[in-house]
């Protein structure tokens, strides 16, 4: 009994000490781990966030890139770090929620305090020299020559692959999957004509769409996308009425167990500074992303559909290590 008591006491003192310190959080620079390389879409938006938080909370927010293994290495660092609010991770909630299913990391979305910033949608874009003018022509062409039309994505488990797989499930088309190191290289391959179609994020295609090198056929959403400097991209539901759109939310997060005072302070900063950040708003508009400054329960509810869709997609493809059911992710 005695050792247990001592332990409990020690833990109590420790948590007191932490919460005492937490009241003054942040007292020293805060690290946000971006588990992807510098310059990518997660990195970009996180640096905007870091800048805004630095101003709002009066302490430096430092972005550290820890790329590798689809973001699981950097995420694990944040998971293993002291739960004191000084280490955060950034990324796409869909990835965070599916590491467990893919057997890459033992964690679930409920283990994290989520602070979302933007949501990215996928766009079906074709090389501008190709004759397809709308989505139905492309679907017809894919049906006419199954497995011949090349689709560039950032790899298995990427947003682009997720998107084309869902179109495949809805229409029964066959395509040739060509994978690249990231969203931008996939888009470039479509511009250069190495591949015919790309289904990567709007943010990654924005410049090429504006420049007339890629023709956007549809946005994988139930509402149209307004892209600054281009115009309107019609929603996929115009052609596939029962297509379930699942936006891919990006944000920063820290594991549960961090003192409540930290979360309260961050929530306050999120609702006041981030939600009103002009820089973030114009960044989102320019990259064809939705501005979604949500935190807490609302964030958890919003990210779930994408995690469900993706986890089950991977499970059905035989790529899951654990059934999503066992991890409490119901089939959508």
């Amino acid at each position: 009994m005695q050792p247990t008591k001592t332990l409990v006491l020690a833990a109590a003192i420790a948590s007191l000490a932490i919460s005492g310190a937490a009241a003054d959080w942040p007292e020293k620079p805060v690290t946000i781990i971006v588990p992807w390389s510098a310059g990518g879409s997660t990195d970009q938006v996180t640096r905007v966030i870091a800048g805004e938080l630095t101003e709002a909370l009066g302490q430096e927010f430092v972005v550290v890139n820890q790329p590798g293994a689809s973001g699981s290495i950097g995420t694990k660092s944040a998971l293993d770090a002291d739960k004191d609010g000084y280490t955060w991770a950034a990324g796409a909630a869909q990835d965070l929620g599916s590491y467990g299913v893919l057997g890459m990391l033992e964690t679930a979305i409920e283990d994290w305090n989520l602070f979302l910033d933007v949501a990215n949608v996928s766009v079906v874009g074709v090389n501008a020299d190709l004759p397809y003018e709308d989505m139905s022509q492309l679907i017809d062409a894919m049906k006419a020559s199954p497995g011949q039309i090349t689709v560039a994505t950032a790899g298995i488990s990427s947003a682009g692959h997720n998107a084309i797989e869902q179109i495949k499930n809805a229409t029964g088309i066959e395509y040739k999957h060509v994978t690249y190191d990231g969203g931008n290289p996939a888009v470039i391959a479509t511009v250069s004509g190495e591949t015919q179609v790309t289904t990567q994020l709007a943010a990654e295609q924005a410049e090429m769409i504006r420049g007339g090198k890629i023709r956007p056929l549809a946005v994988l959403s139930d509402t149209a996308l307004e892209l600054d400097g281009f115009g309107t991209i019609p929603p996929i539901t115009n052609w596939l009425a029962d297509y379930k759109a699942v936006p891919n939310y990006f944000g920063i997060w820290t594991p549960k167990g961090v003192p409540d005072a930290v979360i309260a302070k961050m929530t306050e900063a999120w609702n006041s500074s981030i939600a009103n950040s002009e820089k973030l708003k114009s960044y989102a508009a320019g990259r064809g992303a939705q501005f979604t400054p949500f935190a807490g329960e609302e964030a958890q509810a919003r990210v779930m559909p994408a995690i469900q869709a993706f986890s089950w997609l991977m499970f059905d493809a035989g790529k899951a290590a654990t059934s999503p059911d066992e991890l409490g992710i119901p089939r959508p």
Binding site: E207, G211, G229, S282, G286
Partner: peptide, 13 residues
């Protein structure tokens, strides 16, 4: 990435 963050839009245009 820094150019994007600062609202400069490099690209074909």
């Amino acid at each position: 990435a820094a150019m994007f963050i600062h609202g400069v839009r490099p690209g074909p245009l």
